[in-house]
Design a protein around this nucleic acid. Structure first.
Lengths: 224, 224
DNA sequence: CGGACAGTTGAATCAAATCAACAAACGTGG
DNA sequence: CCACGTTTGTTGATTTGATTCAACTGTCCG
């Protein structure tokens, strides 16, 4: 199973030492297979909530198709998107009984939902599955850690560049691709405002770093 | 086992919905006990490196005493501290074969190091330990997710406030406590500069939010 | 066609960074 | 114990990258 988007090419800007900004292709399918076997199928529409912050965490989810964002809100409405998830990804990892983030469909999604109790029970009988679960959690942790660097220590242009390269994944340069999320989603993911996102993309286009086919579709050029 | 620092009181500013900014007291000691049994004892001096980014990840560590920071560097030297760890904490979780962050002693530390292979083998035989490992990883993930909100969507004053409240933990107001890390460490943790950290602390002192006993020791007041 | 979003662009403002100087604390050795 | 250099922290003046406020354009869809 090759999850199409979000594989990271050797970073063009050479800013980062480590390669993977987003989720990688799922090498051991132990977890995936288990979820398909144990889970039930659900559909959610665009912008529909899958679960919300503070809600008891009964399920883990695997994405069959679509895109999901997980996010946190401050009381005054400020929003931080923690991660985007794509086909093949598993999300919903939580410590404790309740979700720390909410999850929403960026566009309509087909999901497989597995009860945590069932999955952990299966993991108790299957050491390989237990390891796969642990790996999935640490991979998500690693992505979060990389994202912290982006949020804490980089400029708007660097964030947008890294984000788009992550989206483009292993694609060849000059292959155009779709941006499934809105500018507001990108802004809330990168810790910026919509205006800055828009301006910076325009700037990168003028620099020749990318070419916009439409607002939601573009291609990257190698040149810095 | 009560790890002294870093328990979160109900957030005074009511900014955040969720309680735990940092590590909580270790409720199930399964992991801790296993590590003590399987691990070897090591000492590291102040600012000494425990492991570095990209290095093969052979060990997990439990802190007996001292404070550890984990961090990532950009090629031009910019640094982001991902987390601070205190007595009782376990750190060194990694997906894949190599560490994604480096770890350094903020002040001299006594650690217990356990080979990953040994720990995962033990987890294969002990479902309870496997669960404990998974929990530890997801707890770290949750802290990372909360930190992303801080880095992406809050002001300098909010970051400093949240950080100091996290450090103070469950202490009573007017109990003074030590700050084990430098201003530079705080800055690199919160995505700020030393100057801004220093200025903001001064500001919070003038506001009456806190009282500085010395640069490395202070007490919080409830009043905003 | 027209209303509602979604995205872009411009001008003014501001929070934090930068550049620079100073002060306080620390450790080391005479 | 004090002198001295070094590190760590504070404060001031200025600059700047990103935000804010505001207007405008493009696009989708009944």
């Amino acid at each position: 199973m090759l999850s199409q988007p979000f594989r990271q090419e050797p970073c063009a800007t050479a800013l980062f030492g480590s390669p993977a900004v987003f989720s990688q292709p799922d090498e051991d399918c132990v977890l995936s297979d288990a979820m398909e076997k144990l889970g039930t199928f659900i559909s959610v529409g665009r912008n529909q909530e899958i679960y919300s912050e503070q809600e008891p965490a009964h399920y883990l989810y695997k994405i069959v198709s679509g895109v999901v964002r997980t996010c946190k809100f401050l009381i005054d409405g400020r929003r931080q998107i923690g991660s985007f998830h794509f086909s093949g990804d598993t999300f919903g990892f939580t410590s404790g009984m309740t979700h720390g983030l909410s999850a929403e469909a960026v566009k309509s999604c087909k999901l497989i939902a597995v009860r945590r109790t069932i999955l952990t029970a299966a993991a108790g009988r299957d050491a390989e599955l237990a390891t796969a679960l642990w790996n999935a959690a640490t991979e998500e942790l690693q992505r979060a850690q990389e994202h912290m660097v982006l949020l804490g220590r980089t400029t708007a242009a660097e964030r947008i560049t890294a984000f788009l390269q992550g989206l483009a994944g292993g694609r060849f340069v000059s292959d155009a691709f779709d941006i499934p999320m809105s500018r507001q989603d990108i802004a809330d993911y990168l810790g910026l405002t919509i205006e800055t996102v828009s301006r910076t993309i325009t700037l990168l286009e003028q620099t020749g770093f990318l070419a916009l086919e439409s607002a939601r579709r573009l291609q990257l050029r190698t040149a810095a």
